Simulated scan of single mutants.
Amino acid sequence: MSRALDTAVAALMREAAEKAILPHYQKLASHEINQKAADDLVTIADTESEALLAEGLARILPEAAIVGEEASHADAQVMTHLSDSLCWIIDPVDGTNNFAAGKPPFGIIIALAEKGETVAGWIYDPLSGRLCSAHRGQGAWIDGERFTARASGQPKPVAAISLVFIEAARRAALLEHIAPHYTLVDVPRCAAEQYPRIGLGQNDVSIFERTLAWDHAAGVLFLNESGGKAARPDGSAFRVDRHLEPGLIGAASPALFDDLAERMAMLSPSVSK
């Protein structure tokens, strides 16, 4: 089942890239870019891609509910399906701010969840054609090759810490008490790129504050199945039906995760949540 599912989902993601995303890349008119919220954009490529993906996924597994990022923005009730017995989760263009600015990285993310737990995930880069995938209990893959996460090997682990959605006191505490122990690098503002960077040894750890299901479900599974570790800072598992809770750590190994989680636990209670 997983091989057939991989083939069908991969073909659908490539179709969405070719028909709905890349034709608009670096060609967006001003009226084709809208602001959903502060620092959160949506483009015609997002809406066209989600429509194409939702239709295709419904054909692949008609019994599964569908939760798309843009559908959820239009109607928050859509998110109640995240705890259904089967549920597709779609990020039609992850890294929309980058895409709207006409620059990489951006990608497509699809996950399949069962009663709130991710059981399969796919992350596709339309520009390079790289496809990361994972199935629960079956390992992780990049472009059809079995994949094992690796650390950077740098003397100070490389950290990408997303500060965009972190309130001021917590941001200051992270920069004062956590950052000095790491070599900081810029975040790509694209989960479809950040999770592969962790596994591929470009980054060792990453801290995410906002953990929406369409951004993180596939990446968390991919990292865990590849031998890394992604979880809540207290070590509890990420569940898609609790995705509005803040805080998530991704790491290239369990040891790197534990070290960062221990440092974060030492922050004062007022800034560690």
Rank of each mutant, 00 (worst) to 15 (best):
L131Q: 05
W141K: 09
G144W: 09
Y124W: 04
A140Y: 01
G116Q: 04
A111H: 07
D91W: 02
P104Y: 10
C87P: 00
A111D: 04
A134R: 05
P126G: 03
I108Y: 09
I142W: 15
A111C: 02
L127Q: 12
F99G: 08
A111Y: 04
G144Q: 07
D125F: 07
E114L: 07
G121W: 02
T96R: 01
W122V: 10
E145F: 13
G107V: 11
V119H: 02
G137A: 15
I89M: 03
Y124G: 01
R130D: 15
A101I: 13
I89A: 10
L131T: 04
D143Y: 14
I89N: 09
I142N: 14
G139D: 03
E145N: 10
A140E: 04
G137N: 15
I90W: 05
V119M: 04
F106P: 08
D94L: 06
A134S: 09
G129E: 11
P104M: 11
A100G: 13
D143W: 12
E117Q: 15
H135Y: 03
I110F: 08
D125H: 06
A113V: 03
G137K: 13
R130S: 15
I89H: 10
I90M: 09
G107I: 08
G121T: 01
H135P: 01
P92W: 03
D94G: 12
P105I: 13
P126T: 05
S133I: 02
S128I: 03
L86D: 01
I110D: 07
G95W: 07
P126S: 05
C132H: 13
I142C: 15
V93A: 14
Y124P: 00
V119R: 02
W88F: 00
R130L: 13
I90V: 12
K103Q: 15
G102T: 14
I142Y: 14
T118Y: 09
G107Y: 05
W141F: 14
S133D: 05
E114K: 04
